[in-house]
């Protein structure tokens, strides 16, 4: 029983990481109908900003984290939208998708070239203490990730549903033309989404890097897992990203332990195929109809 609990808790902790990254996918999709294939690399890069601020700027960890957050919001939020999304979106979704794939390669190679190809240890926000829970061991780092995932989704849901600003964002996501007629500053709302995504990926990066270590290839695994999580949970719902991420983390752990460790990489894909076939809107996604 303690083994099952251990797998469940560890799966939830890993799933929470996927979930935070997946939230960014869903947010950007909702407001700008953009799939950012560089999302994994967006999570990889802020940790390098923090390390660079510590190493080159000589800053303490907490100050370097603030620098990392600020630089991420500007580079991965504002600049990403202004320099890539806006110019490319005019030419349709496909050129933009290709641009984000190119961006992911650029970010990956830049991190390797300008910092290091080797994995780097990363300080933790909380002291690394292992807690015993009915025979299962969970670290404070994993608890922090879980906590932040839930606070993030809670906060975002409050922002989107309980504030004027959030309702304006939702209106922008549902119908830009009507939102504009109603006086919603559409461009500012879209920019806000990218800024929130920049902030989220930076938070995710700082949280997961003590566990994943800092390496330029981290985005590959994370990006794919988060993308699957967003589809499984529902691409058009923030809470879908959370559900998808947690389900994926737990399925991955349980299948590796009880079915086959050798085929562990295949189970999330089986889950993805099953969801697409049986519930294409995702586990908690909203069914959408479009005229074609």
């Amino acid at each position: 029983m303690s083994a099952f609990l251990q797998l469940l808790i560890s799966g939830l902790a890993t799933g929470a990481i996927y979930a935070i990254v997946a939230v960014g996918f869903t947010l950007i999709w909702q407001t700008s109908q953009t799939i950012n294939f560089a999302q994994g690399e967006f999570v990889m890069i802020p940790a390098f900003f923090v390390l660079a601020a510590m190493k080159l700027g000589g800053l303490p960890f907490w100050a370097a984290c603030l620098v990392g957050l600020a630089v991420s919001v500007f580079v991965l939020g504002v600049m990403f939208k202004q320099a890539i999304v806006d110019p490319m979106l005019k030419h349709g979704v496909l050129p933009l998708v290709i641009s984000t794939i190119a961006l992911s390669l650029l970010l990956k190679e830049s991190a390797k070239e300008f910092y290091s190809s080797q994995a780097q240890p990363f300080p933790s926000l909380v002291p690394s203490v292992d807690l015993n829970l009915f025979g299962a061991v969970i670290s404070t780092q994993s608890l922090l990730v879980l906590g932040v995932a839930f606070v993030t989704v809670g906060g975002l849901n409050l922002l989107l549903n309980r504030t004027r600003f959030g309702r304006a964002m939702q209106a922008t996501a549902q119908n830009r033309s009507v939102a504009r007629i109603l006086g919603v500053p559409v461009e500012r709302m879209v920019l806000a989404t990218f800024v929130i995504n920049g902030l989220l990926v930076a938070i995710a990066s700082i949280l997961i890097s003590p566990i994943y270590l800092v390496k330029f290839t981290n985005g590959e695994t994370l990006g794919l897992a988060a993308f699957i999580a967003a589809i499984v949970g529902g691409f058009n719902q923030v809470r879908g990203a959370i559900v998808g991420g947690l389900v994926l983390g737990v399925v991955d752990n349980l299948s590796a332990a009880y079915i086959s460790a050798q085929y562990r990489g295949a189970f999330p894909l089986f889950l993805l195929i099953a969801v697409i076939l049986l519930k294409p809107e995702g586990l908690v996604g909203r069914r959408e109809e479009r005229t074609v």
Partner: peptide, 20 residues
């Protein structure tokens, strides 16, 4: 006899198997 994946981040399931 526990197989793991290149780039794997979470080893909790593998450790559980070995412990057992």
């Amino acid at each position: 006899d526990v197989s793991t994946e290149q780039g794997q981040a979470d080893f909790s399931a593998d450790v559980v198997k070995i412990k057992a």
